[in-house]
Each structure stands twice: as C-alpha cells, then as structure tokens.
Amino acid sequence: MIYFDKVSKYYNAGQSIAIEDVTFQVAPKEFVSIVGHSGAGKSTLLKMLIAEERPTTGQVFFESLDIHQIPRVKLPKYRRKIGTVFQDFKLLPHKTAFENIAFAMEANGRADDEIMENVPQALALVDLEDKSWNFPHELSGGEKQRVAIARAIVNQPDIIIADEPTGNLDPIATYEVVQILRKINDLGTTVIMTTHNKGVIDELGRRVITMDEGRIVRDDQEGKYVL
C-alpha cells in the first residue's frame, strides 16, 4: 500500500543527512511503529508521506501513485485520503471540538447532514461527546489529542499517520490514545506511528521499524523497543 523506494533526503546541499537509502513497505491494515532517537529521521519519513517534504532521491508510492509527482493543486485531494495526528495536536484554536472535526469534512466537500451524523460518531469513538462545544484551550492534552484523532478519522481515510502522538501526554492519556489508535486499526485502517515511548511499543506488540542516523537498522514483525 505504501512503498518507500531507496529514499534519501539531504539538507544544506548534502551537508546533513536526514534519511539515507530507506526502503520499506506497509501493507493494508498494518499497525507500524517507527522508533528511534531524536533526529533519526522518523518525522521526515512521515512528512514525505503527506508531501510536506520531498525526497532528494528515490520515490514514495501510495498504492501506485508517486506522491511527489502529484501537482500542487491536487495535493489537498490526496491529503484527504490520509488522516494526520501530530505531537502538538494542531487543532484550530478558534473552533470548537465539533467544528474542528467538521472542518475536515467541510474541506472535503461533504454534505451537511453527513457532517451532523459523522462528527458525533467520531467524537463518540474517542469518548468526548460531552466536550463537543469546548474550545481547544478548555481541553486537557489528552482530550485535545483525542479530538485530533477524531478529526483524522472522520473522513474514513485509508491510513492514519501519527507523529509522536503521545509525546506531550501523561501516562494515562498516553494509554487512552494508544487504545484508540489500536481500535481504529482493528476497524481496518492502516496506522503508521512514530514514538519514543518504550512502554507503548512493548504493550502494542506490533511491527516495529527502528531507525538510527537516517537508516533503518531493524524491522521486526512483533517488535520490542530496542535501542
């Protein structure tokens, strides 16, 4: 479903290496964790998937589509196939939880009655029905991240990308967020997540890709956090 083919990314005209010669595949319905130290290139991999960064050499495919050949005007349409979750949540501060989720559907051109139906469902999935009319600054970190996950899944994307989703959360919120991601994966959505959190990885018991200095050093089907 996703295929990185000998991808490298250099900054400062080859001075610094973000990613070097990375090749891997992700099959549909997989739950893949990418682990590694800060600066190992985890986030860069994810940014390439949503076409926020371009590789210096190599190609990234989504199904049979070369992501970096997509013209700029068609990027929004491509990005709607991918739900993204970030460490710093990236909610729209002047919109309520409900509106944040509805925005993703509005941007997608979905009908009003669909929005009225799907947004409460998404909020229910992350267990936040009672906070729909709260603004982000009225929510805790864990609640914000759950809103962000609800926003990511509401358009029923083929794949969820989560960049350090638990990086700013306490252990309980971390547990909740991971459970939600696992539930989403069980419902049939591919999940790709980067993390630092050993507990999360060991608890999940799914495929783990370990990166170091821009290269893949391990790829285990039922991985542990080894670094």
């Binding site: 949503i50 926020e52 005007v73 929004p76 349409k77 491509y78 990005r79 709607r80 993204t84 990236k90 909610l91 729209l92 501060p93 002047h94 925005f103 993703a104 509005e106 941007a107 997608n108 926003r151 358009n155």
Partner: peptide, 16 residues
C-alpha cells in the same frame, strides 16, 4: 499562519 498550515494538512483547498 499556524491555522492556515493546519488547514492545508487537513486537506482544505486554497480557495476554501
């Protein structure tokens, strides 16, 4: 500006 980049990442078109 942060919001604008978030909107882009969520898949909103430029016109929107």
């Amino acid at each position: 500006r942060e919001e604008i980049s978030v909107m882009r990442l969520v898949g909103a078109s430029n016109t929107f």
